[in-house]
Structure formats: C-alpha cells, structure tokens
C-alpha cells in the first residue's frame, strides 16, 4: 500500500475528510517551500501538492502564474523540485503529489523522472495538460515505480469519459470544480457536486475537489459531497503577500481554517 492509499484509508477509518494544500516549489525560494510544506504537514495536511514551475502555465490563473514565474526567476528546475521532495520526505510521511505540465517531465524523460521521483519519496504525479488518451506511456512508467498518475475530471467530461478515466485512475481522482483556470472564487459551484456524484458511479477511489477553494466554508461545502478539498491559490497568495514570513503567514491562514476542520471532520 503506498502513502496515498494509506492516508485515505486512515481518513476513511477516522470518518474524516481530507485537506490537500498546494504550493509552488521554489516560491519564494526552495528553503522556504520546504519549511512551508513541513508546516502544512504539521497542521494536518493529508496530501501535499507540490507545483513544478513552468514558463507557460495555460491552465493557471494569475496567482499561480506569478508564483511559477517567481520560482523560475529563482532558477528552480525539476531536479530542484525532486530534491525538495526528498528533503521533505526525510522529515515527514505525508504523501506528496507533484503537479506539473508535461513538458518539463518529457524533457527529463518519463523513465528517468519516474525513477528519480520514486527515489525522492514522491507518491504521485498530476499532469494538467495530459488527458487519458495521451497518458499510456507515462502512466506505465509511473506504475512500474509505484507512483500514481492522478487523473483529473471536469464538469465538461461526459459520462463516457468519466468511465474511461476511472478505468485507469489510481490514488485519488481530482475533480475540477468548474470550467476555468486555477484561482479563487466566491462559492463552490453546484457543478462540482454534480460532477462528484457522476464520478462516484464509476470509481471507488477517493475524490478530491479543487480549483477556487479558499475559505473554511467552501471546504465544508466540499466535504459534504467529496473526500477531500484542495486549497491552492489562496495559500500561494499568502506566500506572495508575505514572502519573508511565508511559513508564519501560511500557518496562520491554515490555522484559521483548522478549528472548523476539527468540528466538521467528525460530522460525516
């Protein structure tokens, strides 16, 4: 059983729902990212999504675009991100999923990436721009190294696609809450719930909902119908606003959500 599976099993046994924070690796710098990840683990993150910066993040809104840009200006590369993951792994057992566009992975080579990621203690990979029909080769390489390729589903996915995606899905399924790019929004759309309900027909895997979740209330909404909530841009924007006190700022922000976590977590 890999770490992702174990973590969701623990959640299920404790009748709790999951919290999955996202940070861009290397923003504001690699050392801070490590401290932020450790802080998040301390505060009860169930999985950490580590963003691999890319020059052309076409699926991201302005917050993550800028964050990716800052990391690249710091010279952060995919090998650096893997180092960061390895450093984190030495000090925490919280599962890590890399969140990336395909090109940096392809450039490294799928085989080399999969081996290095496994050695670094990474547990899964989520590719924003690779759909199932293009995923066969990378998915196989990852599986050979006991890494999960995390599948994305979207409100526009037809049931036919959901069913096809479910067949190859591993770890958990990432349901995109709405048509759009990453970034915060006022409330969680009804679309998200409909999507999760549809996906449930096809998979037993845990389903996490992400894109646009930034408040405790939204997390609570998501927990009513899904297994975990992903918070990305809201955390990244804390780091953007407080680059010199990133750990404290993220800590305070997440703690602001946590008491309510505890209350709501037991409810389901």
């Amino acid at each position: 059983m890999n770490r992702i599976e174990r973590q969701f099993k623990l959640l299920r046994e404790g009748r709790r729902k999951g919290f999955i924070p996202f940070v861009t690796a290397g923003d504001p710098d690699l050392a801070s990212s490590l401290e932020v990840c450790l802080k998040l683990a301390d505060l009860g993150a169930d999985v950490i999504e580590l963003g691999v910066p890319f020059s052309d993040p076409m699926a991201d809104g302005p917050t993550i675009q800028r964050s990716s840009q800052r990391a690249l200006e710091n010279g952060v590369t995919l090998p650096d991100v893997l180092h960061l993951a390895a450093d984190f792994r030495r000090r925490s057992e919280v599962p890590v999923v890399l969140f990336s566009y395909f090109n940096p992975i392809m450039r490294m080579g799928c085989d080399r990436f999969a081996k290095s990621a496994r050695d670094a203690g990474v547990d899964g990979l989520l590719l924003t721009d690779v759909i199932d029909s293009e995923a066969a080769a990378i998915s196989r390489k990852l599986a050979q190294n006991d890494l999960d390729l995390i599948s994305l589903v979207a409100p526009t996915s037809t049931n036919e696609r959901l069913s096809a995606i479910a067949k190859n899905a591993r770890g958990f399924v990432y349901a995109v809450s709405r048509a759009g790019v990453t970034g915060t929004q006022g409330r969680v759309s009804d679309e998200a719930k409909k999507l999760v309900v549809r996906m449930r027909e096809f998979t037993e895997l845990p389903i996490a909902v992400g894109f646009g979740i930034s408040t405790a209330e939204q997390i609570r909404d998501v927990w009513r119908f899904a297994d975990a909530a992903v918070v990305g841009s809201a955390i990244v924007s804390q780091i953007e606003r407080h680059p010199n006190e990133a750990v404290d700022a993220v800590g305070q922000f997440v703690r602001g959500l946590l008491p309510r976590f505890a209350n709501q977590g037991a409810e389901t």
Binding site: I131, S133, A154
Partner: peptide
C-alpha cells in the same frame, strides 16, 4: 484519429477542453 502526423500532434490540454 488522434491528430498525429507521425509522432507529432495530438491533444495536450486540460480535461475541461476535451469535450469542446
């Protein structure tokens, strides 16, 4: 059918764009 000429082409997009 996947839009490839040899090894080039295809569709590398977010899942949301598959339906359109």
């Amino acid at each position: 059918e996947q839009g490839y000429w040899g090894e080039y082409g295809g569709r590398f997009v977010p899942e949301t764009l598959v339906a359109p």
